[in-house]
Design a binder for these strands. Structure first.
Lengths: 339, 339
DNA sequence: TTCTTCGATGTATGCGCATACATCGCCTTT
DNA sequence: AAAGGCGATGTATGCGCATACATCGAAGAA
């Protein structure tokens, strides 16, 4: 026996296909009796709705697309999970695209999404060089950008002020008395939120009357291994920094390990600060001082915002800047007792 | 101007729709000249292929579905990333379904996948109570199960021998001289791979001539916070264990923190072992002794296997058991110097 | 030369559903 | 009692593509 279609159900229930369609999508349009009859036939014959056909007919798939650099970042995963939690329960599956910081791949994934007529796109940032194309696409279909602010851009965003947060953390380190502060970040040239963090850092340093030293600015993709590598490179410098500000916790925790291996005490000999406040941050040793990012909140809000846009409610622009805060734990202190 | 369809392209290029379709999917069927002509028109008019229509016509979507308990687990993320890496580059997007250990949700997500006529499903385990339904579905469409072995089941799997690995780790702790070993796992009743790990533990304990003590067996979902909680509960026992085997690293690292807070030295006062070998394991303090799980390999192999199945190559059953190994780091030692 | 084969392309149909529009009673309204 | 309104349902068309089958011409076989 072949899979029953809406037509089979209609025939068996003695109604029209339109009525079956209504029974599935908008039951309250039907007489209770009719509804029961149709639902009975549906259940009895194991009818499975064909969403692909529905999508074609409606000219719009009810799938959402999410773009993230890599699922390897636990903090971004928080955003992903929160988002999915909201939209899945409303029948919207999510296709997750890992761009792996590769602009070509990002574009290719984007094309695939367009081919599938996804009903909405959510970006946890995007490659800087693809911004024009992606922003243009944002005009055509519901899109939301997360994890950064796009002020005055006319685009929907739910983000954090990376520059301000980074500036604040750098000021904090400066305030502790550090003169030689390094910055380790993930590809500032390619990712705007990291670039903003770098700007916050350099601004704070410059305000202090000093220029940021190029050898103190390192570029590494956000993995533990890279944090380890970066710290080793910094420690090999003729004049190593007394504090290291890592633009994400993965790098910071890797750096912590490198310090331990080098026999350096944190924070007595060297201070380390992170960005994100991943769950692991408070379980590291010493517990990591970092910037808390409301990743989960952004995911939840993005999900709700997207649902609203799809339902044509609340058609205004979504533009929200969420607060961050410095979480002082145990990896930063005044300099000068070691090294 | 409305979006051009395959028909518009056909007309503009002076060929039939079939030829355009071939130009898109199987270019070598066409005369080079024809191909160039069609591709020119496609490019010039900004034609975008409509995958939804294609899927309907072909009666099969080229999207894959992946079921995981939660993206919050970094080790499962490794599998996800590796899998996506393989299939995305072949044009297969992946819909990721987080079941959150909720059987109802799992079933609902499964229904959504069926409605979308996904071409293949990959499961990082599934809820035990849904196994019959899911295994039955596995007969209808390409499916692969990961992270556990399904010997003699007739299903495709790429997994690890959880029971044996767990048995081995417990033996290791026993060999160190521990008599009081606790087990903390994530919902063994609901997830087969955790059940197997529990079995490995109890088997090893029983072989020692002792029965596993119920108060030493704790059930917690795999989060850092829960590991912390579990350890505190164990430490509150009249007779706390001298070693704690956590069925996943998240729990183990949380437990580590709880010990530190309680003023207990690891491994001098208490031993802790994990399972997974997440990246963070070697960055914890002390570095975590754990069972290495080839998560990435499973993802890669699953991706390749799925592609093969979809291309009808290699139609045999995929049944592979990958090796695990105990990674001895710094959290386990002989008992008896503290507590 | 005639028949066959095969490569290149065209024709025509249907995939399963949504929905604009039409229909048909029945209940209000005046 | 006639007109209008509205709730419940049916009719009919098309969404954009894949593909089975048909066609046609040229090259090779006999």
């Amino acid at each position: 026996m072949t899979k029953p279609t809406i037509q089979d159900i209609a025939r068996l229930a003695g109604v029209s296909t339109a009525t079956v369609s209504r029974a599935i999508h908008d039951p309250k349009l039907l007489l209770p009796e009719t509804l029961r009859k149709v639902q009975g036939v549906i259940k009895r014959h194991g009818y499975i709705y064909n969403a692909v056909a529905g999508d074609l007919s409606r000219r719009k798939s009810s799938v959402l697309g999410l773009f993230i650099p890599t699922a390897e970042s636990p903090k971004i995963s928080s955003t992903v999970i929160a988002l999915q939690d909201v939209v899945n329960s409303h029948g919207f599956p999510v296709i997750i695209n890992n761009t792996l910081f590769d602009p070509r791949l990002e574009l290719d994934l984007l094309r695939q999404c367009r081919e599938r007529s996804l009903s909405g796109l959510i970006f946890v940032g995007c490659m800087t060089e693809n911004e024009p194309a992606i922003f243009a696409l944002g005009e055509e279909m519901p899109s939301i950008f997360l994890w950064d602010v796009l002020e005055g851009s006319g685009h929907n965003y739910i983000g954090i002020d990376n520059l301000a947060a980074s500036y604040k953390m750098t000021r904090y380190l400066l305030g502790l008395g550090h003169k030689r502060i390094a910055f380790v970040g993930a590809l500032p040239d390619k990712v705007s939120r990291v670039r903003r963090r770098l700007e916050g850092y350099t601004r704070a340093i410059r305000e202090q009357g000093e220029a940021a030293r190029p050898e103190y600015i390192l570029e590494f993709a956000p993995t533990l291994e890279n944090g380890h590598l970066a710290m080793r490179r910094l420690l090999d410098l003729a004049q190593p920094p007394t504090a290291v500000f890592c633009a994400c916790d993965m790098l910071a925790i890797g750096a912590l390990t490198a310090c331990r291996e080098a026999g350096l005490r944190v924070p007595q000999d060297i201070s380390i600060a992170g960005f994100d406040d991943v769950d692991f941050a408070s379980h590291a040793w010493p517990p990591l001082t970092t910037v808390r990012v409301p990743a989960q909140e952004m995911g939840t809000m993005a999900g709700r915002g997207m649902l609203d846009m799809l339902r044509k409610k609340n058609s205004g622009l979504i533009q929200q800047t969420l607060p961050t805060s410095i979480i002082v734990r145990g990896t930063c202190a005044e300099p000068g007792r070691g090294v």
